[in-house]
Design a protein around this nucleic acid. Structure first.
Lengths: 109, 109
DNA sequence: GGGATATAAATCCACTCGGTTATACAACCG
DNA sequence: CGGTTGTATAACCGAGTGGATTTATATCCC
């Protein structure tokens, strides 16, 4: 995956409003109005957030009359997870060391 | 995990320089100078990136005379991965649909 | 056609970001 | 002590972000 794709994905995920929008979209498509409803924020602000999510490829949009329903696109989320998976080994090692340390301490008592 | 902790983690990960620094730290501790060497960037710029990573809890720093070695801290990376894992079902569904589509296409030929 | 609804676009502002240079601080070395 | 090395801080700059408000566009419904 291209570097700037990861940039855009992580940058998009770094905002709680946008993460909440993604969470909402897990339960199915939604229009801009539906997505905006839970937030004390203007509709244009939500549209901007949606544009960020769309540019990052995290959502895509259809057309239903004057509505532009949004749906979740899992590709970039998977790519981000794959990138983070490279660090799994590292924290597993650290937790193993922590466990070992705790064992030693337990024996010493 | 607190919302602004995730904010800080994803924001820190949204920069290729910082991701490269993390990657380097997978192979062990490193000083600021060592981390700065691969980049065509001033030392203060690297120090700023390190501060971002430190504030996000992604690294921690020790002290060795006038050096401040950095080491990877896996906690926030794990938290970010856990958050992303909630979306695994989506891409697995999508890939199942893709597989099914490919099967149909294969039968049609 | 005309009003209502859903969304986008344009503009403005305060703020953050990623970089720079210059400077300061702290610890080693001779 | 004085110089050098490693790092942090400050001040600054240009670009981008996240909001608000206002205005435009498009589609539905009557």
């Amino acid at each position: 995956m291209a570097v700037d794709q990861l940039d855009a994905t992580f940058a998009a995920l770094a905002d709680p409003t946008r993460r909440a929008i993604l969470k909402r979209l897990k339960s199915g498509e939604a229009t801009v109005m539906e997505l905006a409803a839970p937030f004390e924020m203007s509709q244009p602000a939500i549209s901007k957030h949606l544009k960020v999510l769309e540019r990052a490829g995290l959502i895509s949009r259809g057309r239903d009359a004057q509505r532009r329903p949004c749906r979740l696109e899992p590709g970039p989320l998977k790519a981000a997870t794959d990138w983070l998976e490279n660090y799994r080994r590292y924290w597993e090692e650290q937790y193993q060391r922590l466990d070992a340390l705790l064992d030693v301490l337990k024996e010493e008592t």
